[in-house]
């Protein structure tokens, strides 16, 4: 039973950042801007917020510090994503290239700044993790469910679930959501009724930036105590989750959960007695999430329904 609780808790650690970043990517791609820069934005959000934690950790700790760091991560992610928005919306640049540039810029900037700011030019940013919640009051005492979802957890887990619910409502039940979806399918139609395609697309990219930045922070905080200018390809994995999730919030949640579970197996196989006994080398367990994603994509891509206008710059003249 303890193994099961442990597995579920671990799965949440891996799932939540994937979920948040993939939902972020959904906002951007549903508005018609392909956002391959998620990885870079995660790194930037992680860098700014972890640096903030590092600087403030003598004065603040626990949930207050975490909430402030969340804000920093979202703001820095949103600001960084503006580079992508400006290039792909105003300048009609190739969105893949601009995204790739951001993915290259973020780690370089993070390493450079960390080494310039920190004494002795250290690249890693060490921080104290004071954010873990041993047990949520009241809810943590519920048998079984309490063990599964309300013990050994982070505030961000519930934030992730909130973001999922909000995304579902916004996308399907609000005027903004309708306009967002329309921009990704047929921007000319949106423009023809007097709504600015540029504004909606900016909103989509900025929201995706804020969420990706947040995902970067959550990934680092829940999996380690130092930041080394990388999020281990999580931004790219989130892209795969987005495609596997068919650009729909609930499907994305399912995909993220699937992938989070695979990642858990690969990271913790040695503490699962059943798996540890199988004579397979650890390298193959490390491949499991990536191979699983590929297999899923092989069966899911034939009927793939990407937003039709994703990746196509909007040109008013071609209406």
């Amino acid at each position: 039973m303890n193994t099961l609780f442990f597995l579920i808790q671990q799965t949440m650690f891996f799932t939540i950042p994937l979920l948040i970043v993939a939902i972020g990517g959904m906002y951007s791609e549903r508005s018609g801007v392909v956002n391959i820069a998620l990885e870079g934005i995660m790194i930037m959000g992680g860098f700014c917020s972890i640096l903030f934690i590092k600087m403030m950790e003598n004065n603040l700790s626990g949930q207050v510090l975490l909430i402030l760091a969340i804000l920093i991560a979202m703001i820095s992610g949103a600001l960084f994503s503006l580079l992508h928005a400006y290039a792909s919306i105003n300048l009609k640049a190739d969105q893949t290239i601009s995204g790739t540039a951001l993915n290259m810029l973020a780690p370089a900037l993070a390493v450079f700044l960390a080494r310039m700011i920190q004494p002795e030019g250290v690249q890693q940013i060490q921080f104290k993790n004071t954010f873990r919640i041993e047990s949520v009051p009241v809810l943590g005492d519920i048998p079984i469910i309490g063990d599964m979802f309300f013990k050994n957890t982070y505030l961000t887990t519930y934030l992730g679930i909130l973001i999922l619910i909000v995304a579902t409502v916004v996308l399907y039940r609000t005027r903004f959501g309708l306009r967002l979806r329309a921009c990704g399918e047929h921007p000319q139609a949106v423009d023809s009724v007097g709504v600015s395609v540029y504004k909606i697309r900016y909103a989509g990219v900025i929201i995706s930036g804020a969420l990706a930045g947040l995902g970067g922070l959550i990934f680092v905080v829940t999996t380690s105590t130092n930041f080394n200018a990388t999020v281990a390809g999580y931004g790219f994995l989130a892209l795969a989750v987005l495609i596997f999730g068919q650009w729909k919030p609930l499907y994305i949640a399912g995909a993220a959960l699937f992938f989070g579970f695979m990642k858990t197996i690969s990271a913790t196989y040695s503490s699962i007695p059943f798996l540890f006994q199988i004579p397979i080398t650890g390298y193959f367990y490390k491949m499991v999430p990536y191979v699983a994603t590929l297999i899923v994509l092989i069966f899911g891509s034939k009927r793939s329904q990407a937003p039709r206008a994703a990746g196509v710059p909007y040109d008013q003249g071609s209406r």
């Binding site: 580079l83 290039a87 300048l91 640049a93 190739d94 290239i97 601009s98 790739t100 540039a101 951001l102 290259m104 810029l105 370089a108 900037l109």
Partner: peptide
């Protein structure tokens, strides 16, 4: 990275 950004 900046060069690539502008190359876009």
């Amino acid at each position: 990275a900046a060069i690539i950004y502008f190359a876009a």
